[in-house]
Every structure is written in structure tokens, then in C-alpha cells.
């Protein structure tokens, strides 16, 4: 029996953890190394690090940061942002990541998913799907939520599984940073369309939201705001989910 996962997420820009609303209005949330170590010690099941600036110039700085975060972690570590090739992914994995997350690059070059899976195993390949509700459709967004695509989030997730993705990190841009709860309809639609784990993201504001996402079929819940700003601690989140009957780590 697998434990449901509680996953704090570090959005990192210019060497700092930041957190915005609908991917904008970024607010400082600390030092990535300290935050990572804090979450590890509090019992996070995994840590996600997304380089949201991901500019070409900052690549080596980011790798250095990834390796310093990894030095203090004894849990699985996923890193995303600016990974476009198998070589990019290899560098991130050598710096200490266990999995890589890709997003825009998967949409632009869907063959990349298979190449990564063949090179590192599908368990290493997380595809982040950013979705925004537009005229009744769940539209896949790229380049940090700035550009819409013609893809439907549910169909895209199913396609990604076929291509060898190991996991889908599903973010509702509409809910991001709003603390108003995950998009449960979207989570449920994607989770029923694939057999690989779906991690719900975007909107967690209270502990009930975490349980609701699991009830909707998510295998794990990713959250930033509620943990960064210490509204809820990880031990509280675990205790709450356990009281609701979900298998979580002690």
C-alpha cells in the first residue's frame, strides 16, 4: 500500500523561493536550501523545485542551487524549469535530483518524453501540466502560464502516459495562490484518464483541500502557500489526512 504524498513546492527565481497568485505578483518566501531542509525535517514525502525564471544565463547558478538543496534532503527530489533536452535532464539528475519535471518542452517536442523515459526510466519523468479554464475547456498553458496551446489538459495527460511519463503534476492556474481549494473537477477528470500518479497542484489553502484532492483521485498533493507562510505545518497535514482515513507516513 502506497502512502499518499504531501509535497511542498519551491518556486525559485533568482536564488529565492517565491510564491505568486495565478503565477504572478511574486512574494519572497525564503532561501531554497533552508526551506528544503526545513520541509525534509518536518516529514515532507517529496520536494519539488521549479526554477520559474529558468533563463538560459542562470542555468549554472540553478544547478549549483539544486545541488545545495539536494545535500540537505533525504527524500525524493524533483527539479523542473528550463529542461529541454536529455542532456539538460542529465545535468539536473547529476546535481542531485531524482526526477525531472518538464512542461513547455514536452508540448513543443512531445518526443522528448519518450527520450527521457528511455534514458532515465519513466519513474524519473514528471510532466507538469498547467491548465486554465477557457470557454468551458481545460486548456494546457506553456511558458510559465503565459501562452495558451490548442491542447486539452485531460487528453494531453493521457497522451503523456502513452509517451512514457511517470507522473503528471497537474496545476490549475485559475486556483494557483488563491487558497480557494484545488480544481477538483479537473483533478478527477485527469486522474480517471491515466493510470500513472497525478499530483494535484494549485489552490490549497486549508487541510480539507488536501483531503478533497485525494478524494478526487490525486495520488499526492502539492502545496506552497499554506506551508511557506506557515499556515499549516506538515505534521498537521499528515495528522489530518490520517484522521480522514488516508494512508500517510507516520
Amino acid at each position: 500500500m502506497l502512502a499518499r504524498r504531501i509535497i511542498p513546492c519551491l518556486d525559485v527565481a533568482n536564488g529565492r523561493v517565491v510564491k505568486g497568485i495565478h503565477f504572478e505578483s511574486l512574494r519572497d518566501a525564503g532561501d531554497p536550501v533552508e526551506q528544503g531542509a526545513h520541509y525534509d525535517a518536518e516529514g515532507a514525502d517529496e520536494l519539488v523545485f521549479l526554477d520559474i525564471a529558468a533563463s538560459y544565463e542562470s542555468r549554472s547558478t540553478t544547478l549549483d542551487m539544486v545541488s545545495r538543496v539536494a545535500d540537505r534532503l533525504f527524500i525524493p527530489f524533483t527539479v523542473g524549469g528550463g529542461i529541454r533536452t536529455v542532456e539538460d535532464a542529465g545535468r539536473v539528475l547529476r546535481a542531485g535530483a531524482d526526477k525531472v519535471a518538464i512542461n513547455t518542452a514536452a508540448v513543443r517536442d512531445p518526443g522528448l518524453v519518450r527520450r527521457l523515459a528511455d534514458s532515465f526510466g519513466s519513474q524519473c519523468v514528471v510532466v507538469a501540466v498547467d491548465s486554465r479554464r477557457v470557454e468551458g475547456r481545460d486548456v494546457v498553458m506553456v511558458t510559465g502560464g503565459r501562452e495558451p496551446t490548442d491542447r486539452d489538459a485531460v487528453e494531453w495527460a493521457a497522451d503523456l502516459e502513452e509517451r512514457g511519463a511517470g507522473e503528471v503534476l497537474l496545476t490549475s492556474m485559475d486556483r494557483d495562490g488563491t487558497l480557494s481549494g484545488y480544481d477538483l473537477a479537473l483533478t478527477s477528470a485527469v486522474a480517471s484518464a491515466v493510470r500513472i500518479p497525478v499530483i494535484a497542484s494549485g489552490g490549497a489553502g486549508k487541510l480539507e483541500d488536501l483531503a478533497d484532492a485525494l478524494a478526487a483521485g490525486a495520488h499526492g498533493v502539492l502545496a506552497a502557500s499554506i506551508f511557506h507562510f506557515r499556515g499549516s505545518s506538515l505534521p498537521e497535514a499528515r495528522a489530518y489526512l490520517k484522521s480522514r482515513g488516508y494512508p500517510v507516513r507516520p
Binding site: M1, L2, R5, G166, E167, R195, P197, H219, P247
Partner: peptide, 9 residues
């Protein structure tokens, strides 16, 4: 689904 990935009791 295989691989088995995650925290198992």
C-alpha cells in the same frame, strides 16, 4: 501500474 513508485509500508 509498474514501476512501483512511492512510499510503501
Amino acid at each position: 501500474h509498474v514501476p512501483h513508485v512511492g512510499w510503501a509500508r
